[in-house]
Structures are given as structure tokens and as C-alpha cells.
């Protein structure tokens, strides 16, 4: 027989802008509780509605995306009234911290895989919204998991997809400068490989549009503007 003590939080492991993450157990399994924090500046009714909706959206996205064969945490339980998602705890290391210690072969294969993963998301109209090296986990048996679908939304716009890629590029430049060239090149190679021949034009338009985004004022220092 199961009792309520089969589900419990252990400790706070991360506090983000929107949510707090707790480690814990769910019927013996190691899990993460993602709890969306109430925002006091918002009207209570509105706040509840927003947190409820976003919890549902994120959980749904995780479930849908998993069906494409992408490694994302398995959702075990959704508690909309408490705006909490209970999902599988992915043991491993953030790509952000382990990247510099990887050998070149691994860098190549990981970033190619990541690129292909993002292509599968995009082809199916999913925008992750926050692809960073902090949201990619390398497990002990070298699988790559994409986490945090908190900013996920649906779109088939070239612009929205380019922004997704552009953000990742910015992260590589600012946090992994010396690895940027190789990693982003492999990432794009993987991204292209995720598209079929009939949709490769669309893929190239998305990649090309990254430059257009970069040329916009806010990303260019005043002295570098044309």
C-alpha cells in the first residue's frame, strides 16, 4: 500500500526567476518538484491562472516532445492547483560545467546531437525558448537531456526559430569562447541533418536569419554599427 509519505520533497536545489526546484522522492523514484512561485505584484486570481496555465503548458510540452524520441525528463505527476510538476531527476552534469573538459571527438558528437535535437523540435513547431548549456545535461552514460521547458511555445515562424538558435550562439560565445567556433559549427551541422531534403530551404532560411538578428541595434556595439 502506498501512503502520502511516498511523495516528499527533500531539499531546495535551485531558485529561478519563476520557479523553485526541489529534489525528492516519488514512490521510491528520484524526482524534481518544479514549483512555480506566486508573484505578489500580480492580482491573485490572475497569478493563479497564469501559474496553472504555464504548469500545464510545460508538462504537455515535455510529454509531446518525449514522443519524438527527444531526451527530456519524464513527467510523473502534475499538480495544477499547486502549480507543480513532478518529473524524473536526471543525474548527470550540466554541459556548461563539463564542456571544457571534453575531448574534441566528444564535443563534435555532442553538439551535432544537440543540433539534431533542436531541429526535430523546430520541425514540429516547438520553440524551446531557452536553449543554453545550463539546460543541457550529460548523463553518466553520455546521453544528452534537454531540460526546462518553462519558456516553451509553439511557432512555425522562421524568426522565432532563428531566435532560439541565436540565443544558443550567444551563450556559446559568452560562456565558452574558446569552444564556440567548433561547437556552433557542429551544432549547425547537426541542425541541418535533422531536416529532410524537401525542408532544407526552410532550414537554411532559419540559419541565415541569425545574421539579421545579430545586425539589429541591441546586439551590436555602437562603434561596430555600419
Amino acid at each position: 500500500m502506498s501512503s502520502e509519505t511516498d511523495i516528499y520533497k527533500e531539499q531546495l536545489i535551485h531558485k529561478g526567476a519563476e520557479a523553485s526546484l526541489f529534489s525528492g522522492k516519488w514512490f521510491g523514484k528520484s524526482v524534481i518538484f518544479k514549483y512555480r512561485i506566486p508573484k505578489k505584484y500580480r492580482l491573485e486570481e490572475l497569478d493563479k491562472k497564469i501559474r496553472k496555465e504555464r504548469t500545464m503548458n510545460e508538462a504537455k510540452a515535455l510529454v509531446k516532445v518525449k514522443a519524438y524520441g527527444i531526451n527530456v525528463p519524464q513527467v510523473y505527476e502534475i499538480n495544477v492547483n499547486d502549480s507543480t510538476i513532478i518529473m524524473k531527476f536526471i543525474a548527470g552534469e550540466k554541459l556548461k560545467t563539463c564542456l571544457k573538459n571534453l575531448d574534441e571527438t566528444k564535443k563534435r558528437s555532442y553538439f551535432k546531437k544537440i543540433g539534431k535535437t533542436v531541429a526535430i523540435l523546430h520541425k514540429n513547431g516547438h520553440i524551446h525558448g531557452d536553449i543554453t548549456t545550463s539546460n543541457l545535461i550529460i548523463t553518466n552514460n553520455e546521453e544528452i537531456f534537454l531540460i526546462d521547458f518553462g519558456l516553451h511555445y509553439y511557432s512555425d515562424n522562421i524568426e522565432d526559430k532563428s531566435v532560439d538558435l541565436h540565443l544558443f550562439k550567444r551563450v556559446l560565445i559568452s560562456s565558452h569562447g574558446e569552444d564556440y567556433q567548433l561547437c556552433f559549427k557542429m551544432f549547425l551541422e547537426g541542425y541541418r541533418s535533422g531536416y529532410e531534403e524537401e525542408s532544407i530551404n526552410n532550414c537554411e532560411s532559419i540559419i541565415k536569419n541569425i545574421q539579421a538578428i545579430e545586425s539589429r541595434g541591441r546586439y551590436v556595439k555602437p562603434e561596430e554599427r555600419e
Partner: peptide, 9 residues
């Protein structure tokens, strides 16, 4: 309330 919550967020 909705528009301002967006701006504040």
C-alpha cells in the same frame, strides 16, 4: 492588470 503584469514580469 494583465498588461501591467506582462510589463512587470
Amino acid at each position: 492588470e494583465t498588461a501591467f503584469a506582462m510589463l512587470t514580469e
